[in-house]
């Protein structure tokens, strides 16, 4: 008998794999741990749907802003102090109407205007939504709780380049006349993706 037994290796748990990279970069003087803390703050506290909610509320109360937003989203959100990464060169704002429902997706991965509408949730990045929403849009929206009237046209926007999208929902009629801050409180990320009513 040989005196060595074969070692059965298993895939390391994912958390240990992350540790391995972070430690290896730190030991090379790249200060990964410092960067992780800084970027964590951005991802969890600054890239949040409340940014997009402010944009939507402003568009509802200020028709001139709404026009600028629809013409050039990136420049208009900058008026509210919001920025986008360098590679998001263009923000297209999709205006819902009573007979038009826009919905955004990324069939190949997870692209979103994340600094404006927040980082995408699991379901947006899952296989099911990516595979189905472009082909079975009305069925998928209904399953998700958005049962559209037959006369509503659906427009699906697949984020396959570096243009980013956000949906401008229709303002609920009962909120006409509300102050801007209160309006921002009713706007959700899912509404800006286009899968949920407000």
């Amino acid at each position: 008998m040989p005196d060595h037994t074969p070692v059965i290796k298993r895939t390391a748990p994912v958390e240990r794999r992350v540790d391995a990279i972070q430690q290896a970069l730190d030991e090379r003087g790249l200060k990964a741990t410092e960067a992780v803390e800084e970027l964590r703050e951005l991802a969890e506290e600054q890239w949040i749907p409340q940014n997009g909610a402010r944009v939507v509320a402003r568009a509802w109360v200020d028709p001139a802003f709404r026009e600028r937003l629809l013409a050039n989203g990136r420049a208009a959100v900058a008026e509210l102090g919001l920025s986008m990464p360098k590679h998001h060169r263009h923000l297209v704002v999709l205006e819902n109407r009573p007979t038009v429902q826009n919905v955004i997706c990324c069939t190949q991965c997870s692209c979103t205007a994340f600094t404006i509408i927040g980082l995408p949730p699991d379901w947006y990045k899952d296989l099911e939504y990516r595979a189905r929403v472009v082909r079975e849009s009305r069925t998928v929206l209904k399953e998700m709780g958005l049962d559209l009237a037959p006369q509503v046209e659906i427009r699906v926007w697949d984020t396959t380049a570096d243009t980013r999208y956000m949906v401008l929902p229709v303002q609920p009629p009962e909120t006409i006349g509300w102050p801007e801050e209160k309006l921002a409180g009713i706007v959700t990320r899912d509404g800006m993706i286009g899968v949920a009513p407000l």
Binding site: P49, T107, Q108, P121, D122, W123, D126, L127, E128, Y129, R130, A131, R132, V134, R135, V140, E143, M144, G145, D158, T188, R189, D190, V195, A196
Partner: peptide, 17 residues
Amino acid sequence: DLGGRQGFGAIRYTPNA
């Protein structure tokens, strides 16, 4: 490259996840 592939089940959706 998943767009339009068939056989997938329900979207595991919870509002504002």
